[in-house]
Design a binder for these strands. Structure first.
Lengths: 348, 348
DNA sequence: CTGAAAGCGCTAACAA
DNA sequence: TTGTTAGCGCTTTCAG
């Protein structure tokens, strides 16, 4: 007859005829007499006992949960990060809480604040914009935070960034090298950090190749497949021979729009994206893309976070624990696929 | 000077000069004198107080966390479910824990068992196979569980299923109606529930259309883009005029392989998938697919779970609470896109 | 080696 | 209306 609820150390203690302290010790692998150990183990097994994680957390001051907050769970880039993070944190015995902020700054701040309710021991955050409120909230965070993205200097938080400026330059140079001269740029919102950086890289690339910057070859929109398609249609009248897109979703949408118009990729226009996500591989034609090390960044972020967590169960409010903030940068890498093969002469 | 830790009701009580009970009452919106309320509010604000969720959970016996365990977070179908579930549970004030089981049965069982550690109040599970161990574990679950998928009769758990048999039949009939006669089938593992059902539907569809079942036109492999590509290459020698695939990932891979061989879709071969995930829309050509109501199933599962949760904070161990298990079935719906347009005469 | 007891932060009786 | 107090289940001194 159940006593009305799941078994606790008390039920075990009673059944084994020992104190709850002994139960706790045995179950946590501490020393105990052969006999005691035996009886506790058996009682626990018979009752199907599983320790209550909440009680443990309350006592220990840590939940062994970590939170990963990203803009959009539908973007394969973040899926790649989740996988990498998961791998690291799981090995360290942490559960991972996933949170999709839909790129809403308000939501990002809420996540940051939620560290305070002690639901998770630490946070990996991918912000899309960095406002003053972000900076303030990051400074006041109630627990360790690692940001994946570029932070203004002085924010006391570990971060892992991609070198998207260099990455974008890489792509432009590649397009130029394959004979493209009117390289259009489909960007996300220019007021986001990635958007800003990728545009800088695009312009740097043009400059390096001796190509002029033409405003009519640049479109700024949202990140997303549909937005990419619209942007491509809008750019066509300007007569580009290549579309460089700020991420794979945009590139996929753009390629789609071109094909739907009966244009050939890459014969008529080359298309390149960024992130080298799964989308780049499953697109038709397969997309040239700049690998910004998503998985690598995720892995690194998780490691940084675990590092902060070690030794210091719950950082005291206010002052940050451990060494000064660290920043890692993942180097970009161009992955060439069919979508940017050199233009061949049009069919006779 | 911080007292070495985040503020608690004690700090607030001291600062406001009231008892901790009053603090709790005010903060939980219970009655209190104007004056008291005022002072507590102010003290809480000044201290930046946020209630400790863990302590609350321990006291209340519920975490206000729910778990969603799916086979693969990289599959857009599950992303769609996550979105739908999120929407429902968020509105009800629950946090959502995401867990990717990688379709490992062992992992699914672990999740089920983990309900016992009281980390979450309930679970939505998408199993890929149902073993005896699953049935046993589902029966013994320590909290409410809703399964998305088909369950053997008698398992005392709410479930939401897709009618993939009918869905597959729909697709075959459509292919037949557009003039295809040698309709090949690319399935996932036949020993999974979805794999089994989709194959039943395929055969039913053939029968309805008066087409013979030809073993050489069927391939069973893993679910996944790469597997789809391999399967398509393997089927080509058998001379199919359509490839019906058990999900969109397979269909995308298959279409890819065909295009890479220089074949035209749909002119030479039609391709259709199932799930109507985002992949179907971003594929080239856009894929005809059978919508199995992923979002709808997610939403419904969340509702069922919340329903069980209501009124009964923590179901006592063993006996299940509330009404008998309920099962909902989402009707399939064919979404026709370019990949299955009727074959035109080959170019002269 | 083992047991009694304190206490993590909070809510909810029960008293005053 | 308010304060005192008893736990929620667990880990961890501190005595024995």
């Amino acid at each position: 007859m159940p006593d009305g609820g799941p078994p606790t150390i008390v039920s075990i203690a009673e059944r084994a005829g020992v104190s709850i302290a002994s139960v706790s010790r045995v179950l946590n692998g501490q020393g105990a007499r052969r006999d005691t150990t035996e009886r506790v183990r058996r009682a626990a097994a018979e009752l199907g006992y599983v320790p209550n994680a909440v009680a443990r957390s309350l006592k220990g001051g840590r939940t062994r949960q970590l939170t990963f907050a990203m803009p959009d769970i539908g973007n394969p880039v973040y899926v790649a990060m989740v996988r990498a993070i998961q791998e690291v944190t799981k090995a360290a015995g942490y559960r991972l809480l996933l949170h999709s902020t839909d790129a809403v700054a308000e939501d990002e701040l809420a996540v940051l604040r939620s560290l305070q309710d002690r639901t998770s021991d630490g946070l990996i955050l991918v912000p899309i914009r960095i406002t003053d409120a972000h900076v303030a909230a990051l400074g006041a965070a109630a627990g360790p935070v690692v940001v994946i993205g570029s932070l203004p200097p002085g924010v006391p938080v570990d971060s892992v960034r991609a070198d998207s400026v260099a990455g974008a330059t890489l792509a432009v140079r590649h397009l130029h090298a394959t004979g493209r001269r009117r390289i259009a740029f489909v960007n996300g919102p220019a007021d986001t950090v990635p958007g800003h950086h990728r545009e800088l890289g695009y312009r740097a690339g043009l400059a390096e190749c001796g190509l002029p910057y033409r405003p009519e070859l640049v479109v700024r929109t949202e990140f997303g497949v549909e937005a990419g398609a619209r942007a491509a249609r809008r750019l066509l009248p300007a007569g580009p021979d290549a579309l460089f897109c700020a991420n794979d979703q945009l590139a996929l949408g753009a390629a789609h729009a071109l094909l739907a118009r009966g244009l050939r990729v890459p014969a008529d226009l080359a298309v390149a994206g960024m992130d080298d996500s799964e989308l780049a591989q499953v697109a038709w034609p397969p997309l040239t893309s700049v690998d910004l090390g998503s998985a690598e960044r995720g892995r690194r972020a998780a490691e940084l976070l675990l590092d902060r967590l070690d030794g210091r169960p719950a950082p005291p409010g206010g002052e940050r624990a451990g060494p000064a903030p660290r920043t890692t940068t993942a180097p970009p890498r161009l992955v060439v696929r069919a979508s940017t093969a050199p233009a061949t002469d049009p069919k006779p």
